[in-house]
Amino acid sequence: MAVDITLLFRASVKTVKTRNKALGVAVGGGADGSRDELFRRSPRPKGDFSSRAREVISHIGKLRDFLLEHRKEYINAYSHTMSEYGRMTDTERDQIDQDAQIFMRTCKDAIQQLRTEAHKEIHSQQVKEHRTAVLDFVEDYLKRVCKLYSEQRAIRVKRVVDKKRLSKLEPEPHTKRKEPASEKSSHNASQDSEEKPAAEDLPEKPLAESQPELGTWGDGKGEDELSPEEIQMFEQENQRLIGEMNSLFDEVRQIEGKVVEISRLQEIFTEKVLQQETEIDSIHQLVVGATENIKEGNEDIREAIKNNAGFRVWILFFLVMCSFSLLFLDWYDS
C-alpha cells in the first residue's frame, strides 16, 4: 500500500509540473500577443485624434462651467433685490454673448474638421465606428451646452422686452394701435396736397394766439430780424428737417416692429429647435435600428446565396451523372 501511494504521488507531481509548464507557455504567449497588439495599436493618428478630441471636450466643459458660474448674474433674476455691488452690466452680458457664440462656432468647426479627417484616413471599420461615436458624443455635449446658453439668452431678451414695454409712459397696446394710423393719415395728408397743411396751420394759429405773449413776441421778433436770404435758407433747412424727421420716425417704428417680430420668431425658433431635437433623437434610433436590420438582411442574403450555390452543385452533379450514364449505356449496347 505504501509503495502504491508513493507511485501515485510521483505521477501527480509530474502531471502538475507538466500543467505548470503548459500554463507558463500560455501566459508568456498571451503576454507577447497583447504586447504586440498594444504595439500595433499605438500609431500616431490615434493619439493625435484622442488628444484633439479631448481638447475639444475640455473647451466645451470650460464654456459650460463659465455659463453656469455666471448664470444668475447673466439672467439678472430678482434684480430688484440684488445690490449694485455684485451686479453684471449689460456690456458684460453682451460680451458674454459674443464670446459664447464665437466659442461655440469654433468648437463646431473643430468637430467638423475632426470628422472630415476621420473620414479621410484609412483605418479599420472598428476604428472608424469608434471615432464616429466619439464625435457624436462630443457634438451632443456641445448641443446641450448650446441649449443651456439659448435658454438663458431667451430669458434675458424677454426681460429686456418687458422692461422696455413698461418703461414707456403710454397707454396699452390697443390704444397704441390707433396712434400710428392717425399719424400715418396726417403724414399722408401733409404729403398729398398743400391745402391740408394750410388747414393744419389754421388750428395751430388759435393755439399760437392762446400761447403767452412770449411766444408771439418771440415769433414776431425772430421774423423781423430775419433777412430774405436767411428766410430762404431757413425754409430749405425746414424742408430738409421735415424729411429727415419723418424718415427717422418711420425707421424707428420699422425697427421696433422688426425687433418685436424677431423676438417672437426667436421664441418660435427655440421651440422648433427643441422639437427637432426630439425628432432627431427618434430618427437616430430608427436609423440605428435600420442599420442593424440591414446587417441582418445582408447575413440572410449571404446564407441564401450559399444555399443557392449548393443547389446548383447538386444540379450539375445530376446532369454529369446522367451524361456518364448515357455514355455507359451506349458502350454496353455496342
Binding site: 396751420d201 395751430e204 415769433d219 436767411e230
Partner: peptide, 27 residues
Amino acid sequence: LQKRFRYHFRGSRQTNVISKPEWYFAQ
C-alpha cells in the same frame, strides 16, 4: 441757432407740430 429754432419750432412751419416733441429735442 436761436433764430433757426424759433423759425422751425415756434412759428407756422410744418415742423412746429405739437405731437412731435422729439423733433426739436433731437435737433
